[in-house]
């Protein structure tokens, strides 16, 4: 009987303690972002969509070889005047990509990189399968600003 009473009272006390914790939390600032209105700043190393600087590319095909999901397809040609290899077509399959960043790591000229676009939604399925990396404005519809790894700060919360 006495044990029962102490159990009930200690139980009530523990519940009150828990209520105290939630009460304190009610007055903390919210940690969430209002997403479409506020957007987080991406970190410097963030791995978004695969992007290419076509002038830098020497068509060495290392990225194509290392890609674990075969998301990249490259054809190249040698310029007869300068004897330099350059890509003719460079197609990126956005659906197969697993954003591992190996292509970026392996690239000898830092031509291929993963930009900071994370809202990779397309209206048509076919558009996503064949993204022409040689085109300059390939992600223009996804990012209003020019895509670049921009911020170093940890201030992703406003």
């Amino acid at each position: 009987m006495f044990k029962m009473i102490t159990y009930v009272f200690s139980g009530l006390l523990s519940i009150l303690k828990g209520l105290g914790i939630t009460w304190n939390n009610m007055f903390r600032k919210a940690v969430t972002l209002q997403y479409p209105l506020q957007k987080p700043v991406m970190t410097e190393r963030f791995r978004g969509l695969v992007d290419l600087i076509p002038e830098k590319c020497i068509a060495c095909s290392q990225c194509v070889k290392i890609c674990p999901t075969a998301a990249l397809d490259l054809t190249s040609a040698v310029n007869p005047e300068t004897k330099k290899k350059s890509p003719c077509t460079f197609v990126f399959n956005g659906e197969l990509c697993c954003f591992c960043g190996l292509c970026q790591e392996v690239c000898p000229t830092s031509a291929i990189f993963l930009n900071n676009i994370y809202e990779a939604a397309y209206y048509k399925h076919e558009d996503m399968l064949k993204i022409d990396l040689l085109k300059v404005d390939k992600y223009a519809h996804l990012a209003p600003k020019k895509a670049c790894p921009c911020s170093k700060t940890s201030e992703t919360r406003k």
Partner: peptide, 25 residues
């Protein structure tokens, strides 16, 4: 996210080391 650029699928370790040193800060 700062260290390897992803939030869930990190792909950070490499055979023989890691893919990048700790960034500053």
């Amino acid at each position: 996210d700062h260290i390897c650029g992803q939030r869930l699928t990190y792909n950070y370790m490499r055979v023989g080391g890691v893919s990048g040193d700790l960034p500053a800060g």
